[in-house]
C-alpha cells in the first residue's frame, strides 16, 4: 500500500520534472517555429476541455439527481469567474455549493 503510494509519488515527480524541463532543454531553438507556436496555442484549450469532460464522466443524466448538482455548481463557478475573475472565489463557492448539495441530498429530495 505505502510502497504503491510512494512509487506513484516518485513517478509523478519524474513526469513533472520532465514536462517542466523538456521545453527549456529542447524547445529553445524551435520556439519561433510556426508549428511550435501553433501547438502552444492550440494545445491548452484542447486539454482543458477534455479535463472538464473527464471530471464529469461519472455523471449520468438518466439517473437521479440527473447531474443537477454538477450543473448548478458548474454554472455558479463559471458565472462567478466571468463576473469577478477571482479563481479562489469561483472554485471555493462552486465546491462549497456542490458539497452542500450532494451531502444534503436536497436535489434528489426535490426531484
Amino acid at each position: 500500500m505505502n510502497g504503491y503510494i510512494l512509487s506513484a509519488i516518485l513517478a509523478m515527480a519524474a513526469a513533472t520534472v520532465v514536462s517542466r524541463a523538456a521545453p527549456f532543454l529542447f524547445l529553445g531553438r524551435w520556439a519561433a517555429h510556426p508549428a511550435v507556436r501553433f501547438l502552444g496555442k492550440a494545445t491548452p484549450p484542447v486539454i482543458l476541455t477534455l479535463l472538464v469532460l473527464y471530471c464529469l464522466k461519472g455523471v449520468s443524466p438518466t439517473v437521479p439527481p440527473y447531474g443537477l448538482p454538477e450543473a448548478v455548481a458548474l454554472a455558479l463557478t463559471v458565472g462567478l469567474h466571468l463576473q469577478w475573475r477571482n479563481a479562489l472565489v469561483s472554485i471555493g463557492a462552486g465546491t462549497g455549493v456542490y458539497m452542500a448539495l450532494v451531502q444534503s441530498g436536497i436535489m434528489s429530495a426535490v426531484i
Binding site: 482543458l48 472538464v52 471530471c55 455548481a73 469561483s90 472554485i91 462552486g94 456542490y98 451531502q103
Partner: peptide, 14 residues
Amino acid sequence: GLDFTLTALFAVLL
C-alpha cells in the same frame, strides 16, 4: 463532494 475542487479548477482555467 470536495473532489469538485478539481472540476471547478479546470472550469476556471477553461
